[in-house]
Amino acid sequence: MTDIVETIVNCDGVSVFYGENRAINNISIDIGKQSITAFIGPSGCGKSTFLRTINRMNDTIEGCRIEGRVTVDGQDIYDASVDVVPLRAKVGMVFQKPNPFPKTIYENVAYGPRIHGLARNKSQLDDIVEKALTGAGLWAEVRDRLQDSGTSLSGGQQQRLCIARTIAVEPQIILMDEPCSALDPIATSKIEALMSELSNEYTIIIVTHSMQQAARVSQKTAYFHLGNLIEYGDTKEIFVRPKDPQTEAYISGKIG
């Protein structure tokens, strides 16, 4: 049933602990290249925690510990020799709440390329910024106000700015943790359209509370419950014929 062409992220027996608390319990999963994978499940089941293991953002949390193996492009990212800086350049992240830097729109997008030294001069940087903003579907709206503060944009625009900021470093994988939860339906549909477009180039993993959103945008869906991966498969299959009774109960609105 799995028709993954090529695996980019492979997790093998991953468990995550916050102090003594086990938030993720022995999860193994393969995620395909250039596709959209949705993580769904009731609140507190560990979707965010699991998503954050893939770019090691959990490292910033005091007392968070991980067991098992996570590989990206075949490389064990928890190996002692791995530096998180290039890893996070490769695995970008868009957060639940839009969090642009309180700097200009231009600086927001230019920040990543600048610290990684992706542009050799100003005009190259300009090009990268334009390309990223175009990719995020924001260029037309902000081309005349690049020097305005990023925080002066609307919520939906801010979230697209954050997406532009992420794709400006040309990652391979983009992790999105409920990127539309603070947005209205119109802004949401814009971002969904954007995701579909981006999936031609990038691998996208999205956490969402909206069944419809998962059904609309993703090719694969993983259902989490209390730190366990209950079911993982083609989105169509999961929504039409869930194999596990828990998945079925959640999708039909009985657990939530």
Partner: peptide, 27 residues
């Protein structure tokens, strides 16, 4: 300084020192 600013910087691959010096301290 909201942690989301730090996360934003770390998320694009800033090192801890960069996130602190470029974003947290100026704010």
């Amino acid at each position: 300084v909201p942690p989301s600013i730090r996360d934003g910087a770390l998320g694009v691959g800033a090192s801890k020192v960069q996130a602190t010096m470029h974003h947290v301290v100026p704010l």
